[in-house]
Design a protein around this nucleic acid. Sequence first.
DNA 1: TCATTTAGCTGACAAAAGTCAGATAGCACA
DNA 2: TGTGCTATCTGACTTTTGTCAGCTAAATGA
Lengths: 290, 290
Amino acid sequence: MNAIDITRIRRFHRTVTREAGVLDQSFLGRGRPLGAARVLNAIGRGMSDVAVIRDYLGLDSGLMSRLLRGLETEGLLATTPNPGDARRRIAALTPAGQAEFEAYEDLSNERAQQLLDHHPDTDALLAAMDLIASALGQQAIAFEEVDPRDPRAIWCLEQYFGELARRFETGFDVHLSKDPEAATMIAPRGAFFIALSDGLPVGCCGLKGHGHWGEVKRLWVAPSTRGMKLATRFMDRIETAACALGHDTLRLDTNSQLPEAVALYHRLGWTEIDRFNDDPYPDVFFEKRL
Amino acid sequence: MNAIDITRIRRFHRTVTREAGVLDQSFLGRGRPLGAARVLNAIGRGMSDVAVIRDYLGLDSGLMSRLLRGLETEGLLATTPNPGDARRRIAALTPAGQAEFEAYEDLSNERAQQLLDHHPDTDALLAAMDLIASALGQQAIAFEEVDPRDPRAIWCLEQYFGELARRFETGFDVHLSKDPEAATMIAPRGAFFIALSDGLPVGCCGLKGHGHWGEVKRLWVAPSTRGMKLATRFMDRIETAACALGHDTLRLDTNSQLPEAVALYHRLGWTEIDRFNDDPYPDVFFEKRL
DNA sequence: TCATTTAGCTGACAAAAGTCAGATAGCACA
DNA sequence: TGTGCTATCTGACTTTTGTCAGCTAAATGA
């Protein structure tokens, strides 16, 4: 046990706890106790089942009930029985509740923006936050099939291209590469997946159709989530999607300057094949029969 | 305002808030309300003036008084009037209080250790935490003159040598460099300073005496605190210390592979001079008359 | 069908946290 | 020396949070 490392974590913990306290204080400014504000926020963030909210916030069922009743008489939410199980209730925000929720959101966002504004190197700060949130949060990573023109998909692709530019000795220019039209990575010809950790995109992968075979494109995993076998899970998804689209073979190209990618494909049972396109960047080519 | 960057900060904030809540829960396990535990911890961590603690924890004076009284009847602390101003009181832990404080410390340390144990890349995690704590915490950085054999000084030096090894194309071996004996950086011949941010060492700088001139050695600033003019403040300290030791000139050596260091010395009014030692690593030499 | 379990609600408390108006004693400065 | 200010303490609150037993209505399963 390294004493200074423990000091470092403890210092981090203290500053961050203080920061959380400041935000709580600002929440209090809206004239509602913190408990009620938290329930409102949980619902606003998409939780609707009362039991789920209660569990998430760690509240006693009696207390929860009273908080809900309070917000209800404020006109901020309405509860209805769950159609599948009438003992359970689902809570939904009224328009007034939605407005109030957004006011809380604005407070949080403002605070976040302040942090960004006051830091000289926001990229490093954000990367550090991602790393810590991934390390601390044991939350499951969810996959979602999206249109590659979805803003979250575009953000992933920007990160991906930025990383290629940094890692390739010769740099990387998207336009010189055979940039697949976004449309080729949409059903029924292809597919595009992103991975979300608590709402934040942390990876992407595309599948482009070429008749009976499919091509894997744009596999990227955020630095903060590497080592969590996300790439493997993406490849599983892609194989499943390719089968569903009727492909019998998958191909992909990559570069020997990305040794972890090359190692991954070998590990997952891909075989190296000859060059199958004239894209200037790749120098290693793989194939896998499904 | 970048929506995804805000998402990243908010996600970080949520996970970290949950983490803080977990620790609070474990504090509750010692059968004392959180408020009292916080007061005990503040005193244990070195705060003694009641007003200072109250201000730090943001407590009402009445509430603070009652919490102190509670801990006093538990036999954990004793308060005495401040000798300089008898209206103020200072609180100090009794042996029982110290033991109880340490029990809380153990809980925190255990939690920190768990985090370290469960992460594949602890260096990156800790660096990220330092960065965030420095960005968030506006706390003043305190300087302390210490013996260079103090464990905190040694830790700084390890970081410093590690960084040189990474940055010098040829690597860096302390033993090949003219390693000043620690004893030459202690009064009355020299001095050694460290900078502390909330207890964590974030920089160091040494002064070695050579008769009428002094030599600046081992200036290092933690990556997490760069851009905060810490190096400039170190050099101020060193100049003051050198004057006090009766030196009329300061010299130092550095390397052109550390351009930010070279730029710093130019900016602070140093002049480049000829080589004044036969250390294999430096290739740039500076002098400043006091 | 009927006992059992489950989700949520209610009433009755209790503990914790926060607020506020004096009271007291010491300090500071004219 | 007196007046005003300060730090702390005390008593008398309120609000917020947490707990618990008992209730109802719905689901579950023999």
